[in-house]
């Protein structure tokens, strides 16, 4: 069972308390009704499926219930870092090659 650090509770908790919520950093347009088909397709249907680093949303559903963002390596399943919802995509990852 993975341990995941909730950036709001500021501690590691077991995976059972969390639920994955899909890819992170996909913002809903403030003018969604006027969005082109292509843009809506990108927003709603197209998702990255990387082998390696993925940016994704998690919810601490059986804890503080907050949604947050995480960076995870899909090969090792290791969480590289977690950060609060609304914060920008980290420019540099801890432990990343220089």
């Amino acid at each position: 069972m993975l341990l995941i650090r909730c950036p709001y509770c500021e501690e590691e908790r077991p995976e059972l308390e969390f639920r994955n919520a899909g890819e992170a950093h996909i913002a809903r347009s403030t003018n969604i009704a006027g969005e082109s088909d292509d843009d809506f397709e990108k927003f709603f249907f197209i998702r990255a499926n990387p082998k390696g680093v993925i940016y994704e949303r998690w919810r601490h559903i059986h804890g503080c219930a907050r949604f947050f963002n995480a960076v995870r390596d899909t090969v090792t399943d290791k969480f590289i870092m977690t950060y609060k919802a609304g914060e920008p995509k980290p420019a540099k990852l801890p432990g990343a090659a220089k």
């Binding site: 913002a27 949303r57 919810r59 219930a65 949604f67 919802a85």
Partner: peptide, 10 residues
């Protein structure tokens, strides 16, 4: 969950 998701993130 759906409501919380939109309220917290969008």
């Amino acid at each position: 969950n759906h409501m919380e998701d939109y309220l917290q993130t969008e």
